[in-house]
Design a protein around this nucleic acid. Structure first.
Lengths: 340, 340
DNA sequence: GTTAGCACTCGATGCCTATGAGTGCTAACG
DNA sequence: CGTTAGCACTCATAGGCATCGAGTGCTAAC
């Protein structure tokens, strides 16, 4: 016995219904559907087959059937039609971003909120992580008598910062020269080549051991990948879905959402995939076994790649989630191109 | 009829019990308490009085009594004894901060988590906001052919940044001179005096209208108060308390916690108070009417003040919350003094 | 002023039954 | 042979009802 066309159509109908209502679907419900043209008895037989094939589960004998995670998997892989995002929704996204935003932090927080609003699910956005950047320059900005902000500029124009101690008696011009000197040594290097570059600097700064080691630490630190920025939107929306009516379940999921690091790494794993759908047990986060995660990745300026996703019950409206995510991807790239 | 000593003792006992159990307290429960020495009938009479005075509520006739928010108010104002934080807990706080943290963001996130762990309530920490800062200098760091990062340094050593467009053909030295020039104009001014300062600059930059207006915007922008940084810890812990067993209630509170801006402004209002306790309706946030918020403010380096707090049900362990918050205040100041 | 005693209240708990949505199976049908 | 009508069966759910017991208010005695 295999999944013929009719079985697929019935399965589709069951999924459609269950996604909407969250209550087990009976054979009569399906047979009465427009365009089905089969009696409930026939549907029952087919449903029985679908259950044997592992696509349906039965909570108890006299209830209807609910789709198993395998069914959703089949659905997203073969049955689903992802429509383009309606013009109206696209406008909606852009409207949300209307006032120019400056910090990446603000942008991703906003994106997460918009995603959540439009899908009614919880949304996560991982800020773009630069890929193996090249160093461009270093510049010091004195912020007090003995401390300076070290700004490290990478290819592509993004920056990182660190604080360093500088000699009290150095005039500002001296600091500027130091900037130039350090820049000369590191320019064009990748972080991996940093050790060599700094050796050269060591000679030039022979008279200032302390300053040199300080610098060294700061540069290295700034070059190491930063803690990934993650924005979460609409976490409380999780509680809207009847599957989490049980407070215990809800708590375990919300707790899981709170461990930013774990969540960030899950998203980071999806950065390489243009889009991905992880259903139930496929998400490797404890406490989220009966959720689904739909993600898309995005690439800004050809350099920095990030990912964003939507988290909901396995009974998720996958097609909608994907089209909203796709719309947001476009919007993000566009905003970046405008501003950058 | 007024609140005599015995009534107060009974009220205290009721509060103590209810805080622990979250179930209405009966007269027998109190009368059996160690050191009470009164029969349940007497307690009943007193409880009846306390109810009339507005300190107790009765969910229904045959249930026990629960403290009203007025009772908690009385409790924190007059009955409560705040113990110093046990040595062990203080060590606990410090242990959490063991590895040096660099960004304010990291520190406050960590603080929120520790607070939440130690109190079992939800915690919020507002990053310190500088008070009416004086401008110290401006420096430009070129990040690409036509753009530069403008670093604005304020008295006290904290900084803000903005992106500006700069003429393609200017060499770096030129940018450095520009830094010096702008710095000369704004040094020592407060943000309110900025308009005048920039007028002077306008003359010096007569040949570069575009650059000047750009700069003007950027400086103004950077001087306006930034979006306050807020860290939230243990939001899911809210669901542990039986008062939020109802998912609807839980959702409304978690949604309220998600509106960062509102929460930030509530905390900002508490910055001026060394500590504050807002009970139930006293919190001015929709959706949090039956929560309580306990806050303390903190001051780093005599300049920047922030606030942090703990959010729980009105049936909160106020004394514990206050002592943990107090301990955290000390720890924060100490960490800052060490590092800064 | 305190307390024992007692009738009373009322939510919680548990049990029973009726209900009805839904199933699987069988036999008849085209 | 696939489809369908019919039917007995299952079982979660909801409502009705009696019971229980924690807790109260009141009164009378100490």
């Amino acid at each position: 016995m295999s999944l013929d066309d009719r079985k697929a159509r019935i399965l589709q109908a069951i999924i459609d219904d269950y996604v909407l209502t969250a209550i087990p679907v009976g054979s009569r419900t399906i047979s009465r559907k427009q365009g089905m043209g089969l009696s409930s008895a026939t549907i029952r037989n087919e449903m029985s087959d679908l259950e044997e094939l592992g696509y349906l589960d039965q909570p108890h004998t006299s209830a209807g059937r609910i789709p198993s995670w395998r069914a959703y998997r089949l659905y997203v892989d073969h049955l689903m039609r992802v429509a383009g995002l309606p013009m109206e929704d696209q406008r909606h996204i852009h409207a949300m971003f209307s006032n120019r935003m400056h910090q990446m932090e603000e942008i991703i927080a906003s994106a997460a909120n918009v995603l959540s609003d439009m899908t009614d699910y919880t949304a996560v956005v991982l800020a773009p992580q630069p890929a193996a950047p090249t160093l461009r320059r270093v510049q010091f900005v004195r912020i007090s008598d003995e401390r300076a902000l070290m700004v490290v500029v990478f290819e592509g124009g993004f920056t990182k910062e660190a604080l360093v101690s500088v000699p009290r008696d150095w005039p500002d011009d001296h600091l500027y020269m130091l900037s130039t000197m350090v820049t000369q040594h590191i320019e064009g290097r990748s972080p991996t080549q940093l050790e060599d570059a700094l050796k050269g600097l060591s000679r030039d700064l022979a008279g200032h051991k302390k300053l040199f080691t300080d610098l060294m630490d700061a540069v290295k630190e700034s070059v190491s990948p930063a803690k990934p920025e993650l924005a979460l939107g609409g976490a409380a929306k999780m509680l809207r879905h009847p599957e989490y009516a049980d407070v215990e379940k809800a708590r375990s999921i919300l707790s899981a959402l709170e461990t930013r690091d774990k969540l960030a790494s899950v998203l980071a794993n999806r950065v390489a995939l243009e889009f991905s759908v992880s259903i139930g047990p496929e998400i490797e986060v404890v406490g989220m076994e009966d959720c689904s995660l739909v993600t898309v990745s995005y690439r800004l300026g050809g350099e920095q790649t990030g990912a964003m996703g939507v988290i909901g019950p396995t009974r998720m409206h996958y097609a909608r989630a994907l089209s909203v995510l796709e719309g947001m991807r476009r919007a993000l790239v566009q905003i970046f191109d405008e501003e950058g």
